[in-house]
């Protein structure tokens, strides 16, 4: 393996942890906000039932890339995406792809907990309801219950499902948002710094949760905490100034990074 920067990408394409099938992949992704280019030619594979962390300093494009994966960038008028991003061998920027269906399949949890100003039950039931996923009230009840269970929130809220979701604590709210996302039964779950607004205890709970969810979902998580990336993910990708510098098995990235910039970031010299 070469230590030169231009070799990094080639090296990154041969990951050690490529056991499953590729769920999503980005090929030559460029993103522009008006005149400004935010992402440069990013190639990245995301494997099924794995957790992949996107790390890098602020403004490096990791969140931009994440938001490309379920086309949340569409809501911004000036944003333009080139290259292609595949979900199960289908280009999600293809004209025939329906963005609503895409987002149902690729769910998202946001940086700041954003429960709807509705009851806890209604928050979780929202996705299934709009997608018409259940036929009976009982089915919906069961789906809500199991989602809350999986999100590790059931025990705390089972007695007050009819109370507003905004009344929960920050950590609980974020788990509610996760429950809300998994109730829609997505295939991929995107998490945009899900713990940045939470205290350490709440963070620990959510990290544990992410590890459990891996069994059923493919998870992409953006984080600015390297410890978190190390704890929860199997693969890690390092972004810097809009470029994907290096990706690989988490262990390798943190213990033996190929690229100098990655090393600098890991050791705290840039950031």
């Amino acid at each position: 393996m070469s230590v030169e920067a231009n070799m990094a990408a080639t090296a990154a394409k041969a990951p050690a942890v490529n056991t499953g099938k590729v769920k999503m992949s980005g090929n030559g992704v460029n993103v522009f906000y008006g005149e400004k280019q935010a992402l440069f030619d990013v190639d990245l594979n995301i494997y099924e039932n794995q957790v992949i962390s996107l790390i890098g300093p602020s403004g490096c494009g990791k969140s931009t890339f994440l938001r490309c994966l379920n086309r949340m960038n569409d809501t911004i008028d000036v944003c333009k995406v080139t290259g292609n991003i595949m979900l199960d061998e289908q280009d999600i920027y293809d004209k025939n792809i329906d963005v609503v269906e895409l987002r149902a399949r690729v769910g998202m949890v946001f940086q700041k907990p954003n429960p709807f100003p509705k009851s806890i039950y209604e928050n979780v039931a929202y996705g299934p309801r709009i997608h018409g996923m259940t036929r009976t009230k009982d089915e919906l009840d069961e789906l809500v219950t199991s989602s809350l269970r999986r999100a590790g929130l059931w025990e705390e809220v089972k007695d007050r499902l009819d109370q507003p979701g905004t009344g929960l604590s920050g950590g609980q709210q974020q788990r509610l948002c996760i429950a809300r996302a998994i109730a829609t039964q997505p295939e991929v779950l995107l998490m945009d710094e899900p713990c940045s607004a939470l205290d350490p205890i709440a963070t620990a709970i959510i990290e544990e949760l992410i590890d459990e969810l891996r069994a059923n979902f493919t998870i992409v998580i953006v984080t600015h905490s390297m410890q978190q990336a190390a704890r929860v993910s199997q693969k890690t990708a390092f972004f810097h100034l809009g470029k994907l510098i290096e990706e690989g098995p988490t262990d390798q990235i943190f213990t033996n990074p190929i690229n100098k910039k990655t090393q600098d970031y890991i050791t705290g010299r840039i950031g």
Partner: peptide
Amino acid sequence: LRDGSAGLGA
């Protein structure tokens, strides 16, 4: 809130 809802495929 709009993002949250859109992110669920609404």
